[in-house]
């Protein structure tokens, strides 16, 4: 730093530690609640230090009947649903955006700009503003209560298409010219040159989109009525409702913990890609 003021550094660290503690508090309380038994979680004040029931709660939540009094699928099944939805959304978005960006940048064809603007418009139509009619379309197509219904309507992506377009535009023209002289067909060029050159961008986008997909709430809430199709994120709300009759907070918080861990793990373990993905897609 510019000047050497030890006191200021100490204060800086203290404030940051306080900030981290404040941000972490809700997660800490969740974790603590997941380590106590049901009886302890009914006495105010609730504990602030972990108890000894973590594995028991973990086993009961993941493999047991879950929360009594609710008619939802077992937690492992919901985790599976969430994983399937998150992967289908993220991989689907990446695939269709990659190929459409490829077409828009590397081909000259009638209506090219028309397609470009059509994709651009999706940016202005988040699912929240077209809830009812989109639901009706999915219902008419018979896609309610299916993985397809959960993912396909969400996989059009203007931001991902723009990002790949930007990436392709920075790849020197000579790559294409050289590949054409080498005799590469368009799809060969796409697989051999473009995909390897966009690898880190794809990975960064995957991190962001995986979290986006995993955390979807309103959409699965609308189109799944079958308990077997419930995602883990959705189940929390149902458990909160059930808690009024049977307040098993240890199980509810363990479920919340299980629902948070995959995306948090992705963010922390791929922090560099995550930051790259965020800054690239939003600018």
């Amino acid at each position: 730093m510019v000047e050497n003021r030890p006191l200021l550094s100490v204060i800086s660290h203290l404030i940051l530690i306080f900030g981290v503690a404040l941000i972490a508090l809700p997660i800490w309380i969740t974790f603590v609640a997941a380590t106590h038994d049901e009886a302890r979680m009914l006495q105010a004040p609730i504990p602030m230090l972990p108890g000894g029931y973590f594995w028991e709660n973990f086993k009961q939540t993941l493999f047991g009947s879950g929360l009594s009094g609710t008619e939802i699928a077992p937690v492992w099944r919901m985790l599976g649903n969430s994983l399937a939805m998150a992967l289908m959304i993220s991989l689907g978005k990446i695939s269709i955006s990659l190929i459409s960006a490829f077409a828009i940048v590397y081909f000259k064809f009638p209506f090219r700009m028309g397609f470009f603007w059509l994709i651009f418009i999706t940016l202005m139509l988040p699912v929240e503003v077209r809830i009812m009619p989109t639901f009706q379309v999915v219902a008419n197509l018979g896609m309610l209560n299916s993985y397809w219904g959960l993912s396909i309507p969400l996989i059009a992506s203007a931001t991902a298409t723009f990002m790949f377009r930007q990436v392709f535009l920075t790849i020197p023209d000579e790559m294409l010219e050289s590949a054409r002289i080498d005799g590469a067909s368009p799809m060969r060029f796409f697989w051999d040159i473009l995909i390897p050159l966009s690898r880190t961008n794809i990975a960064a986008l995957f991190v962001i989109l995986f979290i986006y997909g995993w955390n979807q709430y309103l959409w699965p809430l609308l189109i799944t009525t079958d308990a077997d199709m419930t995602t883990i994120v959705m189940s929390i709300k149902q458990m909160l409702e059930a808690s009024e009759q049977s307040p098993q907070w240890n199980i509810i918080m363990m479920t919340a913990l299980l629902a948070m861990i995959p995306p948090i793990f992705v963010v922390i373990s791929m922090q560099k890609l995550f930051v790259q993905g965020l800054t690239e897609t939003d600018k």
Binding site: P172, E174, S178, I181, D182, G183, L197
Partner: peptide, 27 residues
């Protein structure tokens, strides 16, 4: 271009950055 039986050396070389020298030449 591929069927003209020509080879071209570009100003910025246009080497494929993700391939080794050998793979570049073999492509």
């Amino acid at each position: 271009p591929a069927d003209r039986d020509i080879a071209m050396v570009f100003q910025n070389y246009a080497l494929y950055p993700h391939m080794s020298v050998g793979e570049n030449m073999a492509y």
